[in-house]
Amino acid sequence: MRAGVLRAVAGAVLSLYPKAWRERYGEEVADLVTARPVRLRTVADLAAGAGDAWLHRRRIPGARPLRLPLAAVLVAGIYGLWLLWSPGARDLAGLGSVWDEAARAGSLADELSGTATTMFASAGALALLSLAQLGTAVRAAGKHAPLGAAARTTGRRVVVTGLAVVLPIMLVLTMYAGLMLDAGEPLGPLGGAITGGFFVPPLMALILPLPLIAATSPVLSPAARAAGKSLTVAAVLNAIAWLAVAVLVAMGLREASPWFVTSLAAGAVLSVGMAALVARAVLRRAPEDPVMLPERTQLGRAPF
């Protein structure tokens, strides 16, 4: 291969390095590539170096921790969950045969199925409750002198964002309720038990922007924290429900296909991870300390 082409390829490979590395060493290495002979092994060495730099990114002097945008992670999570749901976990034949095998153990299967269904439904209800907590606080925000104006502005942002997410929330709720009420093909007791795990975390992710916006106002922050606590309990209930599902599937494992078990296991990990991420995001943005309002003076509350 001609040296000029290899030099161009080596230059292109440099763009594969992490940004922090390029900021620190990029110019020096580009200078070396320009000044020294470039061979195929130089290109291969640079490509291996790029992989190494990504693997050991924290070692790059001045590198900041890698942060993926939360919204992107959650959107990818929703897509992932629903891909795993159908055609992965929503395998009617698989659901039926695993349930039949698990049901041989007697009433335990029914109890586990009921527990998972109830826990997932309760998690969804708690997620919706967090909306009600925020709604009450937003309505009262304007009356909170002397921060009323700022709180009203934040409250309006919460309402506008709420209007933007209400349709997707309704869609998720309709799909969830429809599946639970056996609209379309009945999923059976095991299908009913696992459905919530695939729909509650997306519901929580759709609700997430609202407490995050509310947390930016000192007046609405306590309500955002209360919503965060509700979402945390919802995340815990979601995890407990998955434990019940795990025992249920273990009881019928002999009849489960590897594809079904893999889809369900990946779905469980994604579901629990997403719910925990949503709860943690709200609790981190809305601190525990209540807003410190100024002391009241003879002239009323002192301005900031």
Partner: peptide
């Protein structure tokens, strides 16, 4: 030494 290897070592030594 090729540049990728050299700077992999420099990064670690600097760290």
């Amino acid at each position: 030494l090729e540049p990728g290897t050299l700077y992999g070592a420099l990064m670690r030594l600097e760290e």
